[in-house]
Amino acid sequence: MPYNVDAIFQIAGIGIIVAMMHTVLKQMGKEDYAHWVTLIGFIVVLFMVVVLVEDLFQTIKNVFLFHS
């Protein structure tokens, strides 16, 4: 596995932590903070996924001779 497999655990950890924070903030009555935290976590994870997907597309382009 040449690719960062621990990124999977990072994403899972971010998801779990964000879910916990969301739950805690919800319990504390800070609903809007909870939403913000969820959104930021989502953006971070989405960024990682997008970087990886971009890598995937580039690799497919290189492998399958898309020279454009």
Partner: peptide, 18 residues
Amino acid sequence: QKPVFAFLLATFTGVVIF
């Protein structure tokens, strides 16, 4: 807890495997 993260994780895993 978060179905969105689950979806992203699935995507990420698929990309890594590929």
